[in-house]
């Protein structure tokens, strides 16, 4: 599945999302489920390779807050694009917990959500194989004005300055 950066550029995926029934390889960047992370934390943390955790929808940013130093990627699952909990989780990871690693949106998201995800602090989005990438890229530039400051680089007051974003 193609992976898009917050700029809209398609990039190679360095990570493997690992189903729970597959053994964890010794090397390579892997993403494990939150459940597995909780159960196998000691062994996983001892691994000498990049590790990420996949948060199911409904998990909170605080569920991984103590481990953020060790996690190179946090993937947020969107089971249905209408399920907007991930927007809050992304923003909390950045704003409240100061997470600087990659935040990835996976599952069912649509092009129109791409700019909103980015503004909440998401760094990569996994899009379906059938996706027309030009539509996703165009979505980033459709609305060039935002009424709220994005999460990244936030210094100004919360709101009510209209920003040129694209």
């Amino acid at each position: 599945m193609p992976l898009l950066r917050e700029t809209g550029e398609a990039v190679a995926d360095a990570w493997t999302i690992l189903p729970d029934d597959r053994p964890v390889p010794a090397g390579g960047a892997v993403v494990v489920s939150l459940k597995r992370w909780r159960e196998e934390r000691e062994t996983l943390a001892g691994r000498d390779a990049p590790l990420g955790v996949l948060l199911p929808s409904g998990a909170l940013a605080s569920d991984v807050a103590p481990d953020l130093q060790r996690l190179g990627l946090i993937a947020l699952d969107f089971p249905k694009f209408r399920d907007g909990r991930g927007f809050t989780v992304a923003r909390e990871l950045r704003e409240r917990f100061g997470y600087t690693g990659e935040i990835r949106a996976t599952g069912h998201v649509i092009a129109d959500q791409f700019p909103l995800l980015v503004r909440c602090g998401v760094s990569t989005v996994q899009v379906p194989d059938t996706a027309k990438l030009d539509q996703w890229q165009a979505a980033l530039g459709t609305l060039t004005i935002a009424y709220q400051k994005a999460v990244a680089g936030e210094e100004l007051p919360l709101s009510l300055r209209r920003f040129k974003v694209a």
């Binding site: 907007g84 923003r91 909440c120 935002a146 009424y147 709101s159």
Partner: peptide, 16 residues
């Protein structure tokens, strides 16, 4: 009006 601006296309709260 302040609320209108703040809530317009709010990135976090558009899929409540």
């Amino acid at each position: 009006e302040i609320l209108r601006q703040w809530s317009t296309n709010h990135p976090e709260f558009s899929f409540l």
